[in-house]
Design a binder for these strands. Structure first.
Lengths: 342, 342
DNA sequence: CTGTTAGCGCCTTCAA
DNA sequence: TTGAAGGCGCTAACAG
């Protein structure tokens, strides 16, 4: 019995006599044979593995930050569910060292282990990305839409932010909006901030009441509010729009412990739609982005490109959704509170 | 220049003239050479990859369950940080189909791709585990301590549960304790339930007020409370101990929306120490288990065993910690509420 | 239908 | 200190 025949049986090819196939299967079972994936990869010149690279989000002044936690896992599940359908595997890397050079070396090494690379956020500079992209297909999740060297799958930050601002101004008559931004290094954060500015220009009666350079961490929200509290009372905004839910949570806590009512005195809104938002008091009004689908679509796109590297570059936007709860000033029914929108 | 020399340079071996090494490095840089990991694996007979297998936790009557989410990601980070230190990679698989046979086939295939396997919870039967363990080193995270065929790394459920029960009874004088259990398929759930029973026997004055067969999901907590509310009022317990935080959250919500005060009328406690617990009103008293360290220790142990398969089987317990907040009846200072224990 | 054969890219002896 | 050569386990092309 030749190895070629076994290979044919394993790969369900049809050109094998039924009785032969039967016999091979039996022996495989008896011996507990499992193909060596390294040898397969080598022979087929394809590893059937996709890499996912994320950033460890440590904040110097807090503990591990849980916002990044949720994002990565959800993305990962989206990716994994697509890959497992076609029998591909997922290789995870969490980058910790922030020296750009070490990071790049690390990613280079990963390139030798996978057929395609998924990158969360703009971890590396576009020029370095180009170098990697020359080697294998790459898709960036939550990256900048103008990335020239890779496919980009991102949420519609613009639309979500605008819907939120409109809601605060039109439904609740708020007109002094303060913005707590995310780190400029995150494309998402930049987009949301720009969208906030753009939305405000559509309402001459409302004025931006300043902004705080946050870092997507809970503590950023707290710091922003502390700074606000130190200013003259008349400068206090009547709404605080945050670039993500984590910071909104921090801001809300800090306001409440200073005796300021949310949303009575100040409305607070987030962005992301993390589950805990629904459990807060008041429940957080936010913009939900479809994190898992982000991962899923990115995986689909990447697989397409692995199959056909000549595909034109593409930037895909997934819709976001305004999730109105209580922290904007709306009131939820008791029924609603009981089974919160998740 | 022979490939052997290049190989020596890449692997930092010393038997290369400095000038030669220099030249090789330059060419590598210029060509952007990256070693093919499949070929390396094949030649060295080692892949330098560890697999992590987890269960997708879908509940039929809810949406995706977020409790499992957090657990997986945290474990994963613990594992990844250990692996990356030694240059190994992490292959993630999330099992979705629950037919035991398909699951086993899937795991068999993974065995061909990795040097060692990390399994979260008792996903597969011990007999099947034995088959896999004969092929490669395996460690089970949060598995049963008596698993004969693999190393087990788990939290000290016993101690944590006992501390909790003692606190409720001794500090708060509660004496009708109701238990909401996790699924018997989870070793963790079984241990916690057994520990609850054991702890109660130490307090003859306190009585178990019944239990509910939950499934670690938020909805389980809600269902348990609904059932409780349907019973005569005098049967109501004065404390509800839950096998995890998710169910405690569900229970607390349901109690509150029925107008029952927590912890005034009924105390509620959880287990896990997920971050959201600190943000609830009242903040959740719980037992924290060191999830990330669970992953880290499991990875260390697995690497050890890969290096030396003859190592004796080991069951390691990581300490849990009672986190006293408000839902047990204790009161936190305002200061404390502001910067919650995370 | 089935067997034979020639690599896939790298590492590791062994020889020079 | 370097080069040459064999082989890791599998697949694919070709021959029978």
């Amino acid at each position: 019995m030749s190895t070629a025949t076994v290979s044919r049986v394993v790969h369900e090819q049809s050109r094998v006599r039924l009785s032969t196939r039967q016999r091979v299967l039996e022996v495989i079972e008896a011996l507990g044979y499992v193909p060596n994936s390294a040898a397969q990869s080598m022979a087929r010149q394809r590893k059937n593995v996709i890499g996912l690279v994320a950033l460890e989000n440590r904040c110097p002044d807090t503990d591990v930050e849980y916002e990044a936690l949720l994002f990565l896992e959800d993305v990962m599940r989206g990716v994994e569910s697509v890959l497992s359908r076609v029998g591909w595997s997922l290789l995870i890397t969490v980058l910790r060292d922030l020296e750009p050079d070490a990071t790049f070396q690390r990613m280079l090494r990963i390139c030798g282990q996978v057929d395609g690379l998924l990158i969360i956020e703009g971890i590396i500079a576009s020029s370095q990305l180009a170098l990697l992209a020359a080697r294998l297909p790459i898709a960036v999740i939550a990256g900048p839409a103008d990335e020239a060297h890779a496919d980009v799958i991102a949420a519609d930050n613009e639309h979500g932010t605008r819907a939120l601002v409109s809601h605060l101004i039109e439904q609740h008559g708020r007109n002094r909006l303060y913005y707590i931004a995310g780190p400029p290094s995150a494309p998402d954060a930049r987009e949301r901030r720009r969208a906030f500015g753009g939305a405000m220009t559509g309402y001459p009666a409302a004025v931006p009441a300043g902004f705080f350079p946050g870092r997507f961490a809970t503590i950023s929200g707290q710091q922003a509010v502390r700074e606000l509290l130190a200013r003259p009372r008349r400068e206090m905004p009547d709404a605080i729009v945050c670039a993500n839910d984590q910071m909104a949570i921090g801001a809300m806590r800090e306001l409440q412990s200073a005796g300021i009512s949310v949303p009575g005195d100040v409305a607070v809104t987030g962005f992301d739609g993390i589950p805990v938002g629904a459990m807060l008091t008041p429940a957080l009004t936010t913009v939900r982005q479809p994190i898992r689908q982000l991962g899923g679509r990115a995986a689909v796109r990447l697989l397409d490109r692995v199959a056909n590297p000549a595909l034109p570059r593409m930037a895909e936007r997934l819709p976001t959704e305004l999730v109105i709860r209580e922290s904007c000033g709306c009131r939820l029914s008791a029924r609603h509170r009981q089974a919160p929108t998740t």
